[in-house]
Write a protein that binds this DNA or RNA. Structure first.
Lengths: 253, 253
DNA sequence: CTTGGGGTCTTCCGTTACGTGAGGGTCAAG
DNA sequence: CTTGACCCTCACGTAACGGAAGACCCCAAG
């Protein structure tokens, strides 16, 4: 089975002209031609096109892409892995930009004017290179999901019940603290936060303090999580979040 | 205080030529010139440049940016808000691409070859223009969160319990179907899916079929959601997802 | 079998967002 | 008062296509 330019163009949401162009510059030469000179794209060509579009999306020039894809030392899986990393980098960058926008909004609201340095901080580097500090945390986060999926795949119903019971106990502990007016920064609350963190680590994935913070934020931000906790006690989601933050501030680095 | 081209270029990590170009096309004309004709950029110019770079990053053409920024009906804060939303959209898109890469890796590992449709699914729309079909879902999704937070803010404990009970009943219905071997595509299962959708709409936000699909996918993909369902019955998360998809395919557009 | 509508071919010029000098003033330091 | 770093204005070059022209190809319907 092979496809015409039009079909491929429709699949990939590019124009026919673009495919012609890629053919011209030797980036994507269709596997064969019909007797009338029509381009015929094979599955392998589609594969390559997908790679091209990914790299293009990530900001590489067509010349660079040609070089990358024609490197015989790199197998397809490596490409995917690399793209995965690059995508994560891009997402991080956009997240930084999001933060920058928020900062700008704050500044505007407060009537503060930022220094040029602050203002353009985010437009510094964006090319996939050197990210040690922040990125590690993100990677950890991503690994967490994979790890989690891997681990939980092996759980039976008994495991799920056990972990749910364990988690429930922690939540009830929080509810008790909240009911008794114990502040979220109190040692009793942060101890529960620590137990919560250990619970996650034990059953799902290595949960560091930063990850734990992010998780706690989600409990409040996402109503579908919030529902679980708000049903137990009003304001519990926010309380847990605060306790987790206090605990992370205290124990985590 | 004002800045020279070189300084501004350094701040913003663009070339001097780029600033010249923006001046030429009237996108960013420096506030004044020195007596010798040197460009002098004011704070306001830096402000505008920041906006320009944001929109540029988001894929707008310089002409579009000019139009956007020179629209007198839009104040700076609105721009920031808009950029915030656009950035979130981009992040979502990149996340989709991330998922696509993972799918491709899976497929490669399994030796499966994807259909062209699957392969290029993610390259559908990405330009911030004419997005009725897919994008509405994203926008809707974003609105959903806001709507949800707004609504749930007013709920008391009784409300949470009621909605939790209601939700629980649906989940138990699904569990029963699963236990009895009813296929997820069966009318009984899809009816429950529809009830589930209505439940979300009633308590949280307007939940269309596309949003519902995405939500169901998350039940499986995110272990913290999955835990809730897997504790009830093994394979329940996936079952619900399948039923939701079947229901959406059937009823939704 | 031919006729029309759509898809495809190559060719070529246009466009956007700059890059890259060329040739020549400007400015602060030594 | 020179020297090196910076600035100016042309002006042509480039990447990655867009768009249209003129011609060929394909196939389903009359």
């Amino acid at each position: 089975m092979s496809y015409t330019v039009g079909q491929v163009a429709a699949f990939a949401s590019v124009t026919v002209r673009t495919l012609h162009h890629y053919d011209e510059i030797g980036l994507l030469t269709p596997g064969e031609r019909s007797h009338a000179g029509y381009r015929r794209y094979t599955e392998a060509d589609l594969d390559r096109l997908q790679q091209i579009l990914f790299y293009r999306e990530l900001g590489f020039s067509l010349e660079e892409i040609t070089a990358i894809l024609d490197d015989p030392a790199v197998d397809p899986v490596t490409h995917l892995r690399r793209q995965h990393e690059l995508l994560r980098g891009r997402i991080d960058r956009l997240r930084d930009m999001l933060a920058a926008v928020e900062t700008a909004m704050e500044a505007k609201k407060m009537g503060i004017s930022l220094t040029p340095g602050e203002r353009f901080e985010v437009f510094g580097d964006f090319r996939p290179e050197e990210h040690e500090p922040e990125a590690e945390r993100r990677w950890g986060d991503s690994d967490a999901y994979r790890e989690s999926r891997r681990r939980t795949a092996a759980y039976g119903k008994a495991d799920w019940l056990e972990l749910k019971r364990e988690g429930g106990a922690v939540v009830e502990g929080f509810a008790a603290c909240l009911a008794e007016g114990v502040p979220a920064t109190d040692a009793r609350a942060t101890a529960l936060a620590e137990r919560h963190r250990e619970h996650i680590s034990r059953w799902f994935y290595a949960c560091g303090y930063d990850i734990h913070r992010g998780l706690a934020d989600m409990y409040v931000a996402d109503p579908r999580f919030a529902a679980t906790y708000e049903a137990v006690a009003e304001g519990l989601a926010a309380y847990i979040r605060d306790a987790v933050h206090a605990n992370a501030d205290e124990r985590g680095a």
